[in-house]
Design a protein around this nucleic acid. Structure first.
Lengths: 226, 226
DNA sequence: CAAACGTGTTCACAATTTTTTAACAAAAAT
DNA sequence: ATTTTTGTTAAAAAATTGTGAACACGTTTG
């Protein structure tokens, strides 16, 4: 695995140093910018080498939103926004503008590192694996969207398939109805949470013998048991 | 980040001093034992405060293997084994017995420190990523909400689970009924305090053999004993 | 020592909450 | 046009929850 490069954009030097130390110890290359203007210049010069941008919202010269938008005009590089207080961050706005994730300040470096590592791992997995999941009695091939139960193919509707995939990607972990709505239906979806239940129900029926691979965690959500 | 405490168990004073110096300069608290018997006593007294044990294999009184095994009966504290020559160390044996890592002697202090730092960083990261609590006979995984007693899963209702989690997060400390009501039921909750007792009761029943992990502190509340 | 008291435990049951399921109509795809 | 997918609603089913009363148990008081 080659070395990843992270660009830190924050006006406080202390934070930049803190994050750089942790990131470098963790094996990342680090670039820094103290303000939005420099960040964009940096990005023009090194754009291709940058694998991730940590972007503070409160910045001199150009604020984080603008920087994010400008970068998005040219590139799909992953961006994690750092936000001073959670209220400052309008989640919808943030994701609309193209941020991939956001982290509340004050950042605990270890937590941030964990998030970054998880982020790259997910990326890596999505890139490399041709995403076939095989469990006892259930097979899912994400390339072709073919799902088999006990060797024979079942036909899932788009929503059913997405639902299953997200549950499987988070196998062993509870996924709340809100999360499922956000990820399957989109963060701007309006409808009621019960819709999720209905689709889970339909999915379970199609899963037949393996219906209970999707466990209900009363009060919290659903969980796929691989 | 709080200060970590490391227990060094080695019969050679020179090595103890060497390691202590380096560890203290690196910001760790250090405890020492010259032999296995004292190490166990030390562990009984300070067990909860010890974050890592550096354990030599060749020890007077009780050898490292035995010490490791004894400690493992009571605790999941991380243990790094120090081994004189690599041939002495049957790696499989070591990990089977519950050591988390092993380092060949002669130890280069800088290398050991690096390893220890890395170790704590990994630990910290894993803690941030997935909250798992492991006690003697009780395991809790917060991502999946799976709770196991003596290795077999028990099924808890939402309230029971939340209750357990809060007690565990405050393990060793008394949590009053008021606090439990506030945290599990929400501060705007109306009902009586007896409700807590009922749920504690149900929780205890499900915990079966480990029911007394939740101690009643008459007049004050409850306490989880890890 | 016994009675009274304070506190925690246990139990049964009704009330409530949450999930499942089925039916239906709108929307989308074929 | 017909079929499939989808979201909503409401009823049915299932599980959780709150409550109060009886009970237990140790402590304090008489």
């Amino acid at each position: 695995m080659e070395r990843k490069t992270v660009l830190i954009v924050d006006d406080e030097e202390k934070i930049r140093i803190l994050l750089r130390d942790f990131l470098e110890r963790e094996g990342y290359n680090v670039l820094e910018s103290p303000d939005g203007k420099q960040a964009l210049e940096m990005f023009q010069r090194f754009g291709n080498d940058i694998d991730l941008i940590l972007l503070d919202i409160m910045l001199p010269e150009l604020d984080g939103w603008t920087v994010c938008r400008k970068i998005r005009e040219a590139s799909q590089v992953p961006i994690i926004m750092l936000t001073a207080r959670s209220e400052d961050f309008d989640e919808v706005h943030g994701f609309e503008i193209g941020a991939d994730d956001y982290v509340k300040k004050p950042v605990k470096p270890t937590a941030l590192i964990a998030r970054i590592n998880a982020f790259f791992r997910r990326l890596e997995r999505e890139k490399n694996e041709n995403n076939v999941f095989v469990f006892d009695g259930i097979e899912i091939d994400d390339a072709s969207h073919v799902v088999k139960v006990d060797g024979s193919e079942i036909s899932l509707s788009p929503k059913e398939y997405s639902l299953l995939l997200i549950l499987v990607e988070n196998r062993g972990k509870i996924v709340s109805r809100e999360q499922l709505l956000n990820q399957v239906w989109g963060y701007d979806y309006y409808g009621g949470l019960r819709t999720v239940d209905t689709h889970i129900n339909r999915l379970r029926i199609k899963l037949g013998r393996k219906a209970d691979a999707i466990a209900t965690i009363r009060g919290f959500g659903y969980r796929f048991e691989g």
